[in-house]
């Protein structure tokens, strides 16, 4: 039997039954912008950056199963405009100061903002009050940069079996919390060896005493824009994570 395929911006993409549009696109080295998706974890579909138009309907490509003969629009001015607005929303919702951030150059949010040519935050800043948690001996938590992708939540729960992190609150007040009575990371069994310590796509979970080991200018997305790194993004596992 012929392998099923769908069209991604006119390009035929083969897929296995049960694969999502994102899975198949990653395997075919075709870039669909995304933040909350990670091939190692169960897809969630909350950041909405990966929104595509499949057979005329807007869907999240990380949760939508591919169908034979499906026509998917991905890299179009209209979709990229919507993604840019979503990025601007994420930027104003938190406190993102790239120049002083340890993750600058390795940050997916920053890399996508460059990729999608986001020139300004556009909206007024929300300036939320999110104190940092420096209680843990090896790890610093800077909640200011959290984009609520829940990758650390999923990693800690599904891989580490610890459920150190969770999201709390609702609406614009939604925020990342630490599952301890005190709310402090030091009062959990979180360790640098945890999978959750290395999945943050932005700069929330940072290793202490290891600042700027790779100079800015030589970092992941300094070398090549994120749009040309789908192969690496698809290969993200416990071993190769940066």
């Amino acid at each position: 039997m012929k392998q099923p395929t769908f069209l991604l911006d006119g390009m035929p993409v083969p897929f296995e039954e049960g694969q999502t549009i994102m899975d198949a696109a990653m395997a075919a080295d075709a870039f669909i912008p995304h933040l909350c998706h990670h091939p190692e974890f169960k897809p969630q579909g909350s950041c909405k950056l990966c929104t595509v138009k499949a057979n005329g309907r807007h869907v999240s490509s990380c949760t939508m199963q591919a169908r034979d003969g499906m026509e998917v629009e991905n890299n179009t001015p209209d979709l990229n405009d919507k993604r840019r607005t979503l990025l601007q929303m994420l930027f104003v919702e938190g406190n993102h100061f790239c120049p002083s951030c340890e993750k600058s150059g390795n940050c997916m949010l920053q890399a996508l903002a460059y990729e999608l040519e986001m020139l300004s935050p556009h909206f007024d800043q929300f300036y939320p009050d999110r104190p940092v948690d420096a209680s843990h001996p090896d790890v610093l938590l800077d909640f200011n940069r959290c984009i609520l992708c829940e990758l650390c939540v999923r990693a800690s729960r599904d891989v580490d079996g610890k459920s150190v992190f969770a999201l709390s609150g609702r609406g614009i007040g939604k925020h990342l919390i630490v599952n301890a009575e005190s709310g402090r990371l030091a009062d959990t069994d979180f360790s640098l060896l945890d999978r959750a310590a290395h999945v943050c796509p932005v700069g929330v979970i940072l290793e202490k005493r290891k600042g700027f080991a790779v100079p800015i200018g030589q970092r992941l997305y300094d070398e090549k824009p994120i749009g040309q790194q789908m192969e690496r993004l698809a290969a993200r596992t416990a071993k190769v994570e940066v």
């Binding site: 579909g45 909350s46 950041c47 909405k48 950056l49 979503l86 929303m89 994420l90 104003v92 919702e93 909206f123 007024d124 929300f126 984009i147 609520l148 999201l167 609150g169 609702r170 609406g171 614009i172 007040g173 939604k174």
Partner: peptide, 21 residues
Amino acid sequence: FAHESCGFCTPCRVGTSLVVR
């Protein structure tokens, strides 16, 4: 609607609050 938004997805979480503003 800003009050009712659960905050799961980016557009609704931030968008409803931007409309309020």
